[in-house]
Amino acid sequence: MQEEVITCRRHADVLHLDAPLQLIVPHLTESGFIGVSQMRFFVLDWHLISALIERWRPEMHTFILLIRECTITLEDIDIITRLPIDDHAVTGNYRLDWPSVCEEYLGIRPPPHVFKGCGLYMSWLIGQFEAIPEEADDATLLIHARAYIMRLIVGSLFNDKSNTRVNLMFLPLLADMRQARQYSWGSACLAYLYRELCRGANPETKEISGALFILQIWAWERIETVALSLPDPAPHDDAPLGSRYAC
């Protein structure tokens, strides 16, 4: 039984990630990340997440509630985020020449001091791609789209406890935006979340990470006793369900 409120780690960058500029929206749409880009920041409820973790059973990957047994599924990931959930597995290589990888896909070779293994300091990435140049060509827009998606991936979907670095393992998967959509990002996100929930079920665990914002939205949507009262319950246009929640 979880005796304390568990610390829910979240990448600090998610606080400062604005809605994408219209110039890169076509690339986000093509890659399958447009839905996640439409979701806005809200505060994580550590007490709610801790209560869910208390009821998580790692051997079954389900929550045991008073009235039923349930879990977050791929369908939930699809509805909440609109991330692709079919096709190829998301895999990466940790043994690449990372400065060369950045030069190829981000158009710039970062200095050695902004690397730590396959991690690139988020502050450097934000500083380099904070603004899109006027009259940028499509190659430049593609680079900015990749940088934006990397911030989405590491800041929201696969965030870890470092809170300062981008895992460059994902960058080569964004070489071609059409190909990027062929990866099952939703499946990978759910698997990572399951792993963190299983870790959190250990009473000795003090903090967890992962896509906890998706878990919280799932709880608001699926558990009546914790549901929020929203002034406008319907998502706008073709936006994902999760886009109706914001601070």
Score class of each variant (00 low, 15 high):
A12N: 13
V36S: 08
D137K: 11
P58N: 06
G155N: 10
S31F: 14
I217K: 02
H11E: 04
M1V: 03
L174Q: 05
T225F: 04
R165N: 13
F33K: 07
D13E: 13
L168K: 02
R244P: 04
A89V: 12
C198M: 12
G107P: 02
E75V: 06
F115G: 09
Q182F: 13
Y192R: 00
I126C: 00
F170G: 06
E54W: 00
H113G: 01
W56V: 02
P235H: 05
L142G: 15
D97A: 02
I80C: 03
Y245Q: 06
D78S: 08
S156W: 15
C70E: 11
D160W: 04
R57A: 11
R165C: 08
W218C: 03
L171G: 06
D45G: 04
R109Q: 08
M169V: 14
G107L: 00
G186N: 10
L141N: 14
I64F: 08
F63M: 08
T73C: 04
R10D: 08
Y105D: 03
T205Y: 00
D138P: 04
V25F: 15
P58D: 04
R9H: 02
T140P: 04
Q2H: 05
D45F: 10
I108D: 03
R195D: 01
V101M: 03
A188Q: 11
A246Q: 05
V226M: 01
A19E: 10
L96Q: 10
H113P: 03
L212F: 11
I6D: 00
V226W: 06
S184L: 12
V43G: 04
M1L: 09
A211Y: 11
D176F: 07
Y105E: 05
E75W: 09
C247W: 08
I72E: 01
E69G: 06
W185C: 05
W185H: 03
V154Y: 15
P231D: 14
P172V: 08
S31V: 11
L48I: 07
W98E: 05
D45Q: 06
R195E: 01
T91V: 09
D232A: 07
R10I: 02
A239N: 11
T91I: 07
A147Y: 12
S229A: 07
G117W: 03
K206V: 00
S209D: 05
W185D: 13
C247S: 06
L23P: 13
I49P: 11
S184G: 09
W218D: 04
